[in-house]
Amino acid sequence: MIPEPQLSRLYQEVILDHNRNPRNFKEIPNPTQYSHGYNPLCGDDYHLYLVIDESGVIADAGFMGSGCAISKSSASIMTTLIKGKTVSEIAALKDNFLEFMTQAPLPASAKSAVGRMAMFEGVREFPIRVKCATLIWHALADALKDYSSGHKSTGGI
């Protein structure tokens, strides 16, 4: 029997805190990378700004926009996780997280590969909400599309 989804596993205190006080909730005026994540089904709508330095490290990250608690906290936590990491590190983290949210059954190794994002495991019990948690990560993939290592992207909005 499938266990009933638990609201308490969806709306964990840390997630609610990031929803109330999102970190890096700011527009960055001259980002090297920018993308727009929009879900027409629910209207979740975020702009993602990244500054990648010469050595390929995320020097700054910010996001703006509106959406549900899950999408906003996912974006907030993501920005805190990717700052200071290299492009290849965050690309791997992104792949790991998207796998973590969508793979069934969840492989034991997948949880440890996503670090603090593991708190979104409860979202898996609410299939319709998975796209909320992954929206900003898809935006991250878009933002990195035009980045090729060694060359600073023209970026911009």
């Binding site: 709306y11 959406g67 549900c68 899950i70």
Partner: peptide, 13 residues
């Protein structure tokens, strides 16, 4: 500022 989707999920439960 509670997003309608969060309202919908909680009511669904």
């Amino acid at each position: 500022d509670i997003h309608p989707h969060d309202i919908g999920t909680i009511l669904d439960q």
